[in-house]
Structures are given as C-alpha cells and as structure tokens.
C-alpha cells in the first residue's frame, strides 16, 4: 500500500515538475526576443548633415515593421546600417546580439538579415532565375543538395516556381522583385529588409510583392522591416515608425499613427488616401460612421451604405 502511494505521489510530482518546466520553456519562446537594437546611432555621408541623428530603435523578432519618411529622412540609411553595408560613426547597431561594427561578425549578420533593394534590375547576378537564387546559398557554402532544397522553398514561398528556368529580363517588375526576395530567402534569413522595394513597381506588382511579404511574416515568422513612402503599405504593419531628419518622430500601430494627421503632415507625409477623404468628409458633416476608414475599399463600402440610406 505504502509503496503504491509513494509511487503515485512520486509520479504526480514528477509530472507537475515536467509540466511546469514545459510551461516555462513555452513562455520563454513566446517572450519577444530583440532582433535588432540600435542605440544612439549617428551616421553622416558627408560629415556635415547627419543622415541618421542619435537614433535608438528596437525591433522584436517576428514583428512587421514599416518605416515611413520623406526623401532624405534617413530611412534607407537605417536599413543599410542594420545590414552592415555602412557602419555607424557613433552608437551601436546590434543584430541578434552581434555588433555590426565588428568586421568579423558582418558575415553572420548578413546571413540573418536579407535585404531587397529598390531596383530589381540591379540586384540580380545571373541571367537565369534559378542560378540567381543559388547565388546566396553558394556564397555561404551550402551543399549542392541543400541549395536545391532552398531554391525549391524560396520559389514556392514567393510563387515564382514557373519562372525557374527563365531569364530574369523576360519578367515584369513585380515578378523580378519576387525573384529578388526568393534570392534573399534562399540564404534563410531571420530578418527581411525591403528598402523601397515596391517603389518602382506598378500597382499589380506592388500587391504581389506585399502579399508575399505578409505571407512570409505570418507563416514563417520572418521579421520584416519595410522601408517605404507608400502610406497604404503601413496599414499591414504591427508597428509603424515615422522618421524625419534622421530621427524617429513617431512610433506606434498604424491606427495610432494615422490618428495624428497634423504631425504626419509635418513630417512631409500624408494619410492614406481613403483616410484623408474620410476625414475631410467628416469635417463637412458627412456621416460615414465613427470607425476610422483606411482602405479605399472600406471607404467605398461606407459611401455606398450612405447612398443607400439616402
């Protein structure tokens, strides 16, 4: 009897401990880990004006960040700083605990930070799509079999499987940019930076690219930092960062940011078109409902409702 009881007690306690440990481990995983940390960073291209001026910023793993700002606000400079393409003159840039100022850590940082640039034509190395995607994994010394797997994964993730053996010059802008994303994905990064990657694309191409990025963020847990001046792209973000004069001026959810119309305009930006129209109509007493509108589709729906009432 006693032995049985003792055994039962032992078993239960052990199970409890195990459960607690598991819970702990799980919580640890869920706890947001800092992916990128910029502390008091200054950078200047010409020693006169600071492109980035005493900027501090922390980005967590798995976040979808959109960085907004007018031309010359320093938003692209921040992107290049994170990747170590340029080195901060003062302050520190840390990526997963590695300092970008250390030349020896740079390779590791670039392995975990993928970057897609503005012009799709200027970031492809090989003529054939497949060869171009292989370029990254080749550089980091991945074995042939694994490169094949990675290409397969990258092509699938970006929906470019049908272009595999085609020359990139035959593709449209949006398709090229998706191939560029695939080329970066094949390196298996944890962070994806898009430096105005949609600014040269037509609306369809832009939607293609944004769709792919959103999917990668949701399904693969990729941290996304999207530098842009298209307000509509900010609506998908977990957090929007507005930059001006090399500093972070505002930071918050898209709703929080777009609630401050005046401040946004001071930064040389404007609200998403739909939100702007909604605000102007509201000022003139048109009742479109209390809920703020952000997308053109929502606005159209509200207007239709309104007209139906009349």
């Amino acid at each position: 009897m006693l032995v049985k009881k003792l055994y039962k007690w032992y078993n239960n306690t052990w199970r409890k401990i195990k459960k607690r440990n598991l819970k702990k481990a799980f919580c640890k995983k869920k706890e947001k880990m800092s992916a990128v940390k910029l502390t008091n960073v200054c950078f200047s291209y010409d020693d006169e004006i600071n492109a980035v001026n005493n900027l501090s910023l922390e980005i967590n793993q798995g976040e979808y960040i959109v960085v907004l700002g007018r031309n010359g606000s320093g938003k692209s400079t921040v992107a290049k700083l994170i990747n170590g393409l340029i080195t901060a003159q003062s302050g520190s840039v840390e990526v997963f605990g590695l300092n970008a100022a250390n030349k020896s850590d740079l390779f590791e940082i670039r392995k975990s930070v993928g970057m897609v640039f503005q012009n799709p034509d200027n970031q492809m190395v090989a003529t054939i799509v497949e060869d171009d995607i292989a370029f990254g994994p080749e550089n980091i010394g991945v074995s042939r079999e694994q490169i094949a797997q990675r290409i397969e994964f990258a092509l699938n993730a970006t929906g470019t499987l049908s272009f595999r053996n085609r020359p990139s010059s035959e593709l449209s802008g949006g398709q090229k940019q998706r191939v560029a994303i695939a080329g970066v994905l094949a390196i298996n990064p944890k962070i994806l930076i898009l430096d105005e990657a949609t600014s040269m694309l037509d609306p369809v191409g832009r939607e293609e690219v944004i769709g792919v990025i959103k999917k990668l963020n949701k399904e693969n847990g990729l941290t996304v930092i999207c530098v842009t001046h298209y307000m509509e792209e900010a609506l998908d973000a977990d957090r929007v960062i507005v930059m001006d004069g090399g500093k972070v001026v505002m930071s918050g959810t898209p709703e929080q940011i777009f609630a401050c119309e005046k401040r946004i305009e001071e930064c040389g930006l404007s609200l998403p078109r739909a939100a702007y129209i909604y605000n102007r109509l509201k000022e003139r007493g048109v009742d479109l409902g209390d809920q703020q509108v952000y997308t053109v589709k929502e606005l159209a729906d509200r207007l239709c409702e309104l007209f139906a009432k009349i």
Binding site: K80, L85, R110, M115, F117, Q123, F135
Partner: peptide, 11 residues
C-alpha cells in the same frame, strides 16, 4: 547598387 546587393547576399 549591384555591389551592395551582392554584399547583402553574403558574397
């Protein structure tokens, strides 16, 4: 630009 892109892809 290509040089930057190649650097970013660990070349």
């Amino acid at each position: 630009e290509l040089g930057d892109a190649m650097d970013a892809r660990c070349y």
